[in-house]
Design a protein around this nucleic acid. Structure first.
Length: 721
DNA sequence: ATTTTCGAGATTTTT
DNA sequence: TCTCGAAAAT
């Protein structure tokens, strides 16, 4: 029943998936098996063959980038008018809250905090509490906050009118809890929601107000979720609730590609889907269209080392292939140069476009040495790094100007009040904070009320206030882009930028204005400034300018869901990949899945590199255990590795790659993570205990590599806390 | 007395 | 690239 012309392009399993529109369906789709195609075609099928209205379909993607791509494809097939619903969970929650947050106690207006805003809030809290980021690193605390927020108690307590009365979260028994309570208080004052809240609030809304749930359940008659292996319990609950009425939930994922555990991804949701929904159908897509057999066998050979895994084989469709090549470099610099040289020869000798090549790495900082080599060799590249478009300083500045006008919030105020420098620094801000605290008002209000105080003489304070007042008169009457123009000119920000002669920043701002124009054209008359700001709050990489025909550089996480004919995976060293932070088997398995994702991005060629040298902590760099995991027959080495290095790799491996339950040693109170002192080596931390309890593995502070110390040795004593 | 600038050191992954 | 502390500039 090929009612649609493109149906013949699909294999049987794909066809089955596209047509499986009713009920609960799980598609286990291996890397490169055409799942994006299935998801896209399925939406088109729903609309064209079944006559379902686009607004009754929701397709959830993992990133905005993926959402954008899918929207484009669907538009190509169905035409401009078919505004099929493609969104991320977070983006969709913003839509829900825009319509329904007034049903909770919040006003019908909320501000979305991104990670930088969260850090700014933390910075203030730290200042008030007299602690520094050395005591508690921002990222650790943010993680902790996220964890606490997933506690069931949280939802009720934050939305309850008097959240301070909610018991378990309040009692600041320790500093961590104090920080958390403080954070919540600041959030409430700002009417600010962080990423976790977006989903959490929607869940709370659905749990407490049945009419709201019914309304959205009625709207979403067909729900499909991509990258289901990476959903968190919150995402899962949301999907379950939304599909609760019509019972059409279609999920697609690959358990081997779970790489977001640190963000709450839980692999069980896809693995146990059939238990949660006994009537569920499972479809397996196991034909790989993307990669050459050699790349596939290397990837399979690697991932097989994960113990906690459901066995799954991918079958290559493609035939001919080059062998995967590993290069061991003597220095980090040489690693970069080898990659640059290879890229150059791929381009010159084989006529491969630069844009068909990607360099992937575990962490952003690794990109530096690669960049340097590419620049020196005059190879064009585009860096997709952590500082994505919307989080660039100048873009954040612009958005903060706008947000100040829309929300009068402290966060924006603090960012722009002294931008460009107008003499309002620490002391004057402290003055304002005092005033604001006295009267229980916002910093901006305190600023307006005290503008005449002599403390602001000799500063640009009053000029700034006048500009803001003028701009406020314009807010509801001119397009957002004009408003931004006005602010940038009148505050002197633009002049400041021009005098700096920074072309890049100027271009970025021009691009922002363009994207605002686009948005206004799309959204029509009804959008307010606040709407606009909330809509783009989650966009981190919307309009990345990509240089024509250039090599792409990005982290493996950023490469999720993408594919490239030629892929270089660099920095395959212990401590980088797997990351230094992975401490036990579970962490290592996640790292291995990340490597698996990296390898399976490649279609025609895969190159792996590592280098000798020294890590941040001074320890010697050794090749990654992942290189040892791959069956040696399946790939080639270019550059000899000293067997001593391999032995060191095995040493690292022994420390972290044990089976799960690491027995704690009862006597002597020495367990994993406890601090110990050794007669000769000094102080250190126990990072492991051998399964047979024969020895501890101790990382001494003064020695780069961990050492095994017999449990019977008397010279190893615990250090009192 | 305050603010600004400049250089040194550190860095997982992101909605 | 971002953060923090000390010197230079207002």
């Amino acid at each position: 029943m090929d009612t649609v012309p493109w149906m013949s392009q699909l294999n049987d399993a794909q066809k089955e998936a596209v047509q499986a529109t009713e009920g609960y369906v799980r598609v286990v789709a291996g890397a490169g098996s055409g799942k994006t195609r299935v998801l896209t075609y399925r939406m088109v099928y729903l609309v064209t063959a079944l006559g379902i209205l686009p607004e009754n379909i929701l397709s959830v993607t993992f990133t905005n980038k993926a959402a954008g791509e899918m929207r484009r494809r669907i538009r190509d097939m169905l035409g401009e008018n078919s505004a099929a619903l493609v969104n991320t969970f977070h983006g969709f929650c913003v839509s829900i809250l825009r319509e329904d947050i007034h049903r909770l106690y919040y006003p019908n207006r909320f501000l979305i905090m991104d990670t930088e805003d969260q850090k700014a809030v933390l910075r203030e809290i730290y200042e008030e509490m007299g602690i520094t980021s050395k005591d508690f690193s921002y990222s650790e605390i943010l993680h902790e906050i996220s964890v606490r927020k997933s506690d069931d108690q949280y939802v009720g307590s934050v939305t309850a009118p008097d959240f301070s009365a909610a018991s378990p979260l309040k009692a600041p028994s320790d500093r961590l809890s104090a920080i958390f309570t403080n954070y919540l208080a600041k959030q409430r004052k700002l009417y600010a929601l962080d990423f976790d809240d977006l989903i959490q609030f929607v869940l709370y809304l659905f749990h407490t107000i049945p009419e709201a749930l019914a309304k959205w359940q009625e709207r979403i008659q067909y729900l499909q979720v991509d990258e289901f292996q990476d959903v968190s319990s919150r995402d899962y609950e949301l999907a379950r609730l939304l599909s609760g009425k019509y019972g059409n939930l279609f999920v697609v994922g690959d358990p081997d590609q779970t790489i977001y555990s640190w963000r709450g991804a839980n692999i069980d949701f896809i693995n146990d889907f059939d238990k949660a929904f006994p009537e569920a159908r499972t479809i397996l897509l196991d034909r790989n269209y993307r990669s050459c057999p050699s790349i596939l066998s290397v990837s399979n050979s690697l991932i097989r080392h994960n113990v906690n895994r459901i066995e799954k084989q991918l079958f290559p469709v493609r035939e001919s292939s080059f062998r995967v090549l590993h290069h061991h470099a003597r220095t980090a610099k040489e690693e970069g140069w080898w990659i640059a040289g290879k890229i150059q020869s791929l381009h010159d000798t084989f006529g491969i476009e630069f844009s068909d090549i990607a360099v992937l790495y575990r962490a952003n900082y690794v990109s530096r040495m690669i960049e340097e080599a590419l620049v020196r060799n005059k190879i064009p590249y585009t860096l997709f790094n952590g500082t994505e478009f919307y989080s660039r300083a100048e873009i954040k500045d612009c958005l903060s100007y706008l947000r100040l006008l829309a929300f009068h919030d402290d966060l924006s105020f603090l960012r722009v009040v002294n931008l460009p420098p107008r003499g309002i620094g620490k002391t004057r801000i402290a003055f304002l904070k005092e005033r604001a605290a006295e009267s229980g008002i916002s910093l901006f209000e305190a600023f307006q009320q005290n503008i005449g105080d002599k403390i602001f003489a000799r500063t640009g304070a009053s000029e700034f206030q006048i500009v803001v007042q003028e701009a406020e008169k314009l807010v509801d009457h001119v397009p957002v882009s004009d408003l931004l123009d006005f602010m940038l000119k009148q505050t002197g920000y633009e002049a400041d930028l021009l005098s700096g002669g920074d072309e890049d920043r100027k271009n970025n701002i021009a691009e922002l204005k363009e994207s605002i124009d686009d948005f206004e054209k799309d959204a029509g008359e009804t959008t307010t400034l606040a709407d606009y700001l909330n809509r783009i709050a989650m966009f981190t990489d919307l309009s990345k300018r990509e240089r024509d025909d250039s090599v792409k550089l990005m982290t493996i996480h950023a490469a999720k869901g993408l594919e490239f004919p030629y892929v270089f995976v660099c920095g395959l060293n212990e401590g980088i990949f797997p990351s230094q932070r992975s401490r036990d088997r579970r962490d290592i398995e996640e790292e291995r899945r990340i490597a698996y994702v990296a390898f399976t991005r490649a279609g025609d060629g895969l190159f792996l590199t590592d280098s000798e040298g020294f890590n941040f902590d001074g320890s010697q760099r050794v090749p990654s255990r992942f290189l040892l995991n791959i069956d040696a027959k399946l790939f080639d080495h270019d550059g000899r590795i000293d067997p001593v290095l391999w032995n060191m790799t095995r040493m690292y491996e022994r420390v972290t790659d044990w089976d799960e339950a690491v027995p704690e040693k009862p006597a002597g109170a020495i367990g994993v993570k406890s601090r110990v002192r050794h007669d000769v080596f000094g102080e250190g931390t126990v990072i492991g205990i051998s399964p047979d309890l024969r020895f501890y593995t101790v990382k001494f502070d003064s020695i780069p590599l961990p050492k095994n110390i017999s449990t019977d040795f008397r010279g190893l004593i615990p250090v009192p806390e």
